[in-house]
Each structure stands twice: as C-alpha cells, then as structure tokens.
C-alpha cells in the first residue's frame, strides 16, 4: 500500500516536501480565485506567479534584504528584514500583479488618482506618444514606477482579497505583503506589472507570518538552531569524555 508521511521538520526533508506540495495545491486555487475576483468591467488585468522551493524563496528573501538597505527608515528596514525571514519560512509565495495600472488605465475619469473628473493627473505624469503611455519610461526613482491608475490598483486588491478568501477557506495560513511583491517584481517573476503583492502561504503548526520577535532576522528559529550547532559542536569536546569507561563512580557501582 502506498503511504505518504507528513512532517514540517526538518525543512525540505521528504516529509516536509510532501506537506509543502499540499500547500501548493491550495496556493494554486488561490491564484484561480484571484483571476475570478470581481473587477471593474471584468477587464483582464491580473497576472500571477506561484513561487516555491528553497532556491527561489531564498532569492526573494535576499532581494528583500537588499531593498531593506536601500531605505534609511528604520521601520522600513526592520519590516523588510523580518518579512524576508517569513519568505524563507513560508511554503510558497503567491504573487499577484496588475499589468494595466501604469499604462492602460481605466480611463473613466473617476478622480481617484488626482481628484479631477478626468485622467489628466495620470497622463500628464507619464511619458506619452500621442495619448498612449510609454510603459518602459521610468517616472520616479522610487520602488514603484507611479503614478498608477487607482481603479486598477483597486482591482488588484480584489484579486488579493479573492486569493485570501480561498486561503482561509482551505485552512492554510496566508498573509499579503508589499515587500514580497516588490522584491519579486524586481526579480522579474512578473512580466508586465508595475505593482504587485506577494502572498506568503504556509500550513504549519504556527503561522510563520504573525507573532514574531523583534530583530527577527537575527532571532529566528533557523538562526537559533544554527547558533546551537555552532556552540554545541565545541561544547561536545570540552570534557574529553570517554563514554566506554564512563564515570568512575558509576563503574564501581555496577561492579558491586
């Protein structure tokens, strides 16, 4: 009879991999929910990616640590560094972006972006040929190449909300992050979006995405285990104990 054995430790061991695959099944349904989420006019505008595995999650985490250093704000730095650990501890990353937000706005003159009854605010702040926005032109030095069409951003929110609903219904822990989305965006996991949200997904005893320690990048479980490995290996040697001869007192007791 075939059987599957599940465990969440050690990370990336076969039982852990088996467990992660189940999370992936849930993450895939989350992506579907993102695509079927209600959007203005039902216009297609969402792209997504499912990222998992040590290599790719580590790549995103490293990028986040790099982005952390790019900003002088202490709170921003701690947020990015902490959330980088969460990426490492997650089972998978669901990445959702809106590829219309920058260059093909809703054109409804809704007023959300600039407070005017037209789309002038957006068009006047982006490079245009005729009235067509050149999506390749950088407008700012910021992480996000704004301004963006707020209708499209709202629809990205709908997509994230749909994915999160499915996550809770399927009893997997999930939490949406700006930092993960931007880092993954910079790494090119999404092809056309200027804004993205990364949803970390996990099915573990304790959600890796809440209730963490301060300076979490230094005090995470992985760091603690690594430090124990560092000190334990030396401690093991310092008594030069011979387990075959044992303690004299105990040997005497046994002889008697």
């Amino acid at each position: 009879m075939p059987s599957i054995y599940y465990d969440e430790w050690p990370r990336y061991s076969p039982p852990d991999q088996a467990r992660r695959e189940n999370t992936l099944a849930a993450a895939k349904m989350m992506l579907n929910a993102a695509f079927t989420a209600p959007m203005m006019g039902g216009i297609p505008q969402i792209e997504g990616a499912l990222i998992w595995g040590y290599e790719d999650q580590e790549k995103i985490a490293r990028k986040m640590e790099e982005l952390a250093r790019a900003n002088k704000g202490k709170r921003w730095q701690e947020m990015f560094k902490t959330e980088a650990v969460m990426v490492r501890e997650a089972d998978a990353v669901v990445l959702l972006g809106n590829y219309r937000a920058a260059d093909t706005p809703m054109d409804a003159g809704c007023g959300l972006c600039g407070g005017q009854p037209n789309c002038d605010f957006l068009y006047n702040r982006r490079t245009c040929v005729g009235g067509v926005i050149d999506h390749t032109e950088l407008q700012t030095e910021n992480l996000i190449n704004g301004p963006l069409c707020m209708c499209r951003v709202s629809d990205l929110g709908e997509a994230v909300g749909g994915a999160m609903t499915v996550a809770t219904r399927l009893l997997v822990d999930a939490r949406p992050f700006m930092s993960v989305g931007l880092a993954a965006l910079k790494l090119g996991y999404l092809r056309r979006s200027e804004i993205a949200v990364g949803i970390l997904v996990a099915s573990q005893a304790k959600s890796p995405f809440v209730d963490v320690l301060p300076y979490y990048h230094m005090f995470s479980l992985d760091r603690a285990v690594d430090n124990l490995r560092r000190t334990y290996v030396v401690l093991r040697q310092v008594f030069w104990y011979d387990y075959r001869t044992g303690f004299r007192s105990r040997v005497k007791e046994e002889e008697e």
Binding site: L213, P214, F219, A224, N227, L228, T231, Y232, L235, V238
Partner: peptide, 26 residues
Amino acid sequence: TEDDIVEMLQRNIPSIFEGFPGDGRP
C-alpha cells in the same frame, strides 16, 4: 521595552548569545 525583550531572549535562547564555549564557561 527593547531591553526587556533582549534580556528575555538572552534567558530563553542563550545559545544565540553564547561566546566560544571551549573554556566550559562561555
């Protein structure tokens, strides 16, 4: 406070704060 938490961490996960343990009294 930050100091409260660091002190708590030192008590709870001393291995992170431990220096070289070769002298038996790190």
